[in-house]
């Protein structure tokens, strides 16, 4: 039997409307997005600037939002069906980590209760002793001392500890997929790496895949195997992480990579950023390539027709008119 892909997005579009049901404005937050994650454990980076639709995609995968067009399949079955037929199983198999470790906890629950509820809800243990054992194991696996954290309230934990408590929760459930939306952007640098290393370890040791959503290409490069680059709701390039960073094809990806500040004063930006037009306003082109307004190489064709993804080998795909033959 061939394993079904872990996650598949097929031509997914999400439209938000504003200004009333008739004649209101349409806003395509996510526009015809297609990508997939293989059945074998992997980390996929979903990269984009603010407004690129990355969080909307996460919300659709988790079933918080429904796509207007297209479908999202988890293990070959649509997320809508999963949630209708076996919601608990889906929630166990797909877990989320959010950006803000300060807001997700109930301030009146001690850490202990957060984890116990998880055990109870998903019936992970048959007795209290077993539950306690599981919780202690999970905490130790991510280097938290149970006696240090269990009795504490969320406000008594540091940002890093809170985010790690989420990891302990995930470890209790051993899901198949983690949807991590900017999980480290609020953490200090010195503990960021520690967190990322756990995601890597989860993949290797427990076979947990991760959709790592971020604006930060540095951390994406550090842990991901593959990347999907979004620009204004559309996929502009996707491929192995190594290729995306070292052989980027789309001018948008190139611009992103050129703009990353590097932690080395010897590698400062040499020249001024070249953009066709000053990015004065945030404009979404109605048609054509999403990058057309800022692209230094834009042609007439780019304004009119939207480029589709072209496979240039090695699993590297780019939506760029120059590569069409």
């Amino acid at each position: 039997m061939v394993d079904k892909p872990l996650l598949e997005l097929k031509h997914v579009t999400k439209i938000f409307r504003s200004g009333g049901p008739y004649g209101g404005k349409e806003f395509r937050a996510v526009d015809d997005v297609t990508f997939s994650m293989p059945s074998k454990p992997s980390i996929l980076a979903l990269v984009g600037e603010s407004g690129s639709g990355k969080t909307t995609i996460a919300n659709m995968i988790l079933g918080f939002l429904k796509p207007n067009e297209g479908e999202i399949l988890f293990r070959g079955e649509s997320v809508t069906d999963w949630l209708k037929n076996k919601p608990k199983e889906f929630r166990r198999k797909v877990q989320a980590i959010f950006q803000d470790p300060y807001e997700i906890y109930n301030p009146f629950y001690r850490a202990n209760r957060v984890l116990k509820l998880t055990v109870k809800k998903f019936k992970l243990a048959s007795s209290d002793e077993e539950a306690e054992k599981l919780i202690h194991e999970a905490l130790r696996a991510i280097d938290l001392r149970p006696q240090d954290v269990l009795g504490r309230y969320p406000h008594q934990l540091s940002g890093g500890e809170r985010q790690r408590l989420m990891l302990a929760r995930i470890l209790l459930l051993k899901p198949e997929l983690i949807v991590a939306d900017e999980p480290v952007s609020m953490l200090d640098v010195s503990i960021r790496a520690i967190f990322l290393n756990y995601l890597e370890e989860f993949k290797k040791q427990y076979g947990i895949s991760c959709l790592y959503i971020t604006h930060d290409l540095n951390t994406a490069y550090y842990i991901a195997d593959k990347a999907v680059v979004l620009n204004l709701g559309k996929v502009v390039e996707t491929g192995p992480m190594e290729n995306i960073i070292h052989k980027p094809l789309h001018p948008y990806t190139q611009m992103l990579i050129d703009s990353i500040p590097l932690p080395d004063p010897k590698m400062r930006w040499k020249e001024k950023l070249k953009l066709k037009k000053l990015s004065l306003k945030e404009i979404r082109p109605e048609k054509g390539c999403p990058f057309v307004i800022r692209c230094p190489y834009a042609m007439k064709k780019c304004e009119e027709t939207k480029p589709s993804l072209i496979d240039i080998g090695d699993g590297h795909l780019v939506a760029y008119h120059l590569y069409e033959r």
């Binding site: 503990i191 790496a193 290393n197 540095n218 550090y222 590698m267």
Partner: peptide, 12 residues
């Protein structure tokens, strides 16, 4: 600090 210029294990 992870960097796209160098892939190495970071301990924090």
């Amino acid at each position: 600090i992870p960097s796209i210029k160098k892939k190495k294990i970071i301990k924090g």
